[in-house]
């Protein structure tokens, strides 16, 4: 059976690429700490020696649109072109092309459907910064095949938070039952408190530091029950109007397991959001 080599949950900050590639003398004051922490975080994936990456993210109205909006979608393609014109324009992100792992995509689609998730699929998917940011931070050589999994955290009506957790649990069960000798890392990115296009955007820190503190605690301790007891689709508006992206962290808590403490945790306070990085090594992974 395949080995779940690592489970990684992270925020995805589209300005990391620009910040880390500009000449050192032009970098903003927070850059050095940020780059140091991302470099340490990267090592947690490297030491897991993965062969394939399952990447959980959310399209930001790039390819997926309101005329045909899936709730959960798995890409199944030999390649994924990546990043869009408006991400180059606003964030300075590079165009990329990532290899796909079609066999694992097909397996997750078939088994996921049979496990009760009516998954959408795409055979021609251009992925955006929710997937390329963690490639840039965690695997900048972009040499491993991926399976992209997109969730709808963006266009109401959204699936319930518990559904994200359930999907995470199912992804883990399926990967551990995959008849393969490959090492699989699951990497998912979302947000802590975040406001975009609203009155609380681009403040000196995230819009709700108290939510961030609680969220980091839930994730780091694997407190799915505590998290689900407080987080609802309605409650997520309060910490910031883009905070539904936290549900991708909840999905990753489902992958990591109930009550399982993260083996690695770090945070960085940035000007409009808190960055947070978590890695779990399943016991049998031998990382």
């Amino acid at each position: 059976m395949a080995t779940l080599a690592a489970v990684i949950a992270s925020t995805h900050h589209p300005f990391y690429y620009k910040t880390s590639t500009m000449p050192p003398e032009e970098r903003p004051p927070f850059a050095e700490e940020w780059i140091t922490k991302v470099t340490a975080f990267r090592e947690t994936l490297t030491r897991a020696a993965p062969d394939v990456l399952v990447m959980v993210g959310s399209d930001h109205f790039h390819q997926l649109w309101l005329d045909n909006m899936p709730q959960f979608l798995i890409g199944k393609a030999p390649f994924y072109d990546a990043n869009f014109y408006n991400e180059e324009r606003e964030f300075g992100l590079p165009r990329m092309r990532l290899k796909g792992h079609e066999e694992l995509s097909a397996y997750l689609l078939r088994e996921g459907l049979d496990a009760g998730f009516d998954l959408a699929f795409s055979n021609e998917l251009r992925v955006d910064h929710s997937i390329t940011c963690p490639i840039i931070t965690l695997r900048p050589q972009a040499d491993l095949p991926i399976v992209p999994i997109y969730t709808n955290i963006f266009a109401p009506p959204l699936p319930q938070p518990a559904r994200f957790v359930q999907l995470g649990r199912t992804i883990r069960q399926l990967i551990e039952a995959w008849p393969s000798d490959l090492r699989v890392a699951v990497i998912g990115t979302g947000h802590l408190s975040l406001e975009l296009g609203g009155p609380r955007q681009f403040g000196p820190h995230g819009p709700d530091p108290e939510f961030d503190r609680k969220a980091v605690e839930w994730i780091a301790t694997g407190d799915i029950e505590g998290c689900l007891s407080e987080v609802t689709l309605d409650s997520l508006w309060k910490p910031g109007n883009a905070t539904h992206g936290f549900m991708d962290f909840m999905l990753m808590m489902g992958v990591a397991g109930d009550g399982v403490k993260a083996d690695y945790m770090d945070t960085v306070d940035l000007f409009h959001t808190m960055e947070a990085y978590f890695t779990w090594y399943p016991k049998e992974a031998g990382a």
Binding site: H60, F61, N86, R89, L196, Q201, F202
Partner: peptide, 29 residues
Amino acid sequence: HPFLTLTLFIAMFERDYDEPLGFQKEYAR
């Protein structure tokens, strides 16, 4: 959708502000 509005308006008007995030902060105000 606030994300759509913000992204497009940054594309149109961020260039008119000297200070980094100047447009985004005015937008919030």
